[in-house]
């Protein structure tokens, strides 16, 4: 649906040039929730704005449903934008208009007859659960309610694509979850493709089907959210994942290694498992089969979108050979093993 080819964006403000995006290639499929994660300044904001041409790319092209948006004239661009909804971190609601009038705003722009427009707004407010707030001004709403208005507004012209620019970054975790749930519902019910940018790995974990990791103006990794969680291919991805699972291992534990002396050694490992294997008693099988002891330091089971995803940090104690055999066993059973400390 969206195909981005060799996209670059250079800001030439004053003397120096700033590279905001470099050689971005990306494909977003119909009906998926696609996340782009990156730190602030990585270029994700520029990238999402290039898609509806709020920012003009320096080179490269963007095909939306086969049409190159970088070649469109103003008229064509306005028509296209009416069919691409966008929601924002700071909501960007008009303080001069009530909730109802904010949602009708894009319909006014598109020139929809008033009667039809009003009916549409009623439906949309119902969808986002704000029917009772129609006559209220945005100032009186909570952050989560404001974003619901933003979502209703973005859906008014029945878009085929929703762009979400850090839509949950100004919200508390609980509200974030409810907004993400709403987005997932809309994705499912309306078959709406959603492209979101965020710096919060929880958002990717809760809502996205696929993810692209952007670092220093480049896309460094693209893939299925589950596979990136279980097997991050780049340090950037790994550090994002570490922000939400397995908080840092305390220093004391990292350095409390049992001296290697041929008969006893210790290895600190992180085991992660996805979906079905989370149900099998692999750990106890391993402990019975190999003569190693395990010291469990940390463990949790989470969900990535709707699949269980667990991870466990263990200290394995035994002879070096046995530890290695035990780790091989876990790998063969389909678990991801990462050795955290290896001195």
């Amino acid at each position: 649906m969206i195909q981005i080819n060799n996209l670059s964006k250079i800001y030439s403000g004053g003397e120096q040039e700033v590279m905001a995006l470099k050689d971005v290639n990306l494909t977003v499929n119909q009906g998926e929730i696609f996340g782009i994660i990156g730190l602030s300044g990585a270029g994700k904001s520029t990238l999402i704005r290039c898609i509806n041409m709020l920012e003009e790319p320096t080179t490269g092209n963007i095909l939306i449903n086969g049409q190159d948006v970088t070649l469109m004239n103003n008229q064509e661009l306005r028509q296209l934008r009416q069919k691409i909804g966008m929601i924002f971190q700071h909501f960007n609601l008009l303080s001069s208009r009530t909730v109802f009038d904010n949602v009708i705003f894009p319909l006014e722009i598109a020139g929809i007859p008033e009667k039809k427009a009003r009916q549409k707004v009623v439906e949309l407010l119902e969808l986002v659960g704000l029917s009772d707030k129609a006559r209220v001004y945005p100032e009186q709403l909570s952050g989560g309610q404001k974003q619901r208005v933003g979502i209703a507004r973005a859906l008014a012209n029945e878009p085929f694509l929703l762009l979400s620019d850090e839509a949950t970054s100004a919200l508390d975790p609980q509200t974030t979850r409810s907004i993400l749930k709403l987005l997932k519902d809309i994705n499912r019910q309306l078959g709406l493709t959603i492209l979101l940018i965020t710096h919060d790995m929880n958002v990717i974990k809760d809502a996205c089907d696929r993810v692209a990791v952007i670092d220093n103006s480049r896309i460094v990794e693209v893939g299925d959210v589950l596979s990136i969680f279980s097997n991050p291919g780049t340090p950037t991805s790994r550090s994002f994942i570490n922000t939400i699972i397995n908080k840092e291992i305390p220093e004391e534990i990292l350095h409390r290694s049992v001296a290697d002396n041929g008969s006893t050694a210790s290895r600190l490992i992180r085991v992660s498992f996805i979906g079905t294997s989370a149900g099998e008693p692999l750990m106890s099988t391993m402990l019975q089969k190999y003569n190693v002891k395990a010291n469990i330091l940390y463990g949790n089971i989470d969900r990535v979108k709707d699949t269980p995803f667990g991870n466990l940090t263990l200290e394995l104690i035994g002879t070096l050979d046995l530890i290695n055999e035990a780790m091989d066993f876990l790998r063969e059973s389909g678990l991801e093993i990462e050795v955290l400390e290896n001195d």
Binding site: L77, R78, L80, N92, E108, I109, A110
Partner: peptide, 19 residues
């Protein structure tokens, strides 16, 4: 952000000024 939001909806310059 408000102007950007209106632009993202496909508003033209006159609509942005007036609305």
């Amino acid at each position: 952000g408000l102007i950007e939001a209106a632009l993202s909806m496909g508003a033209n310059a006159w609509q942005i000024i007036r609305k």
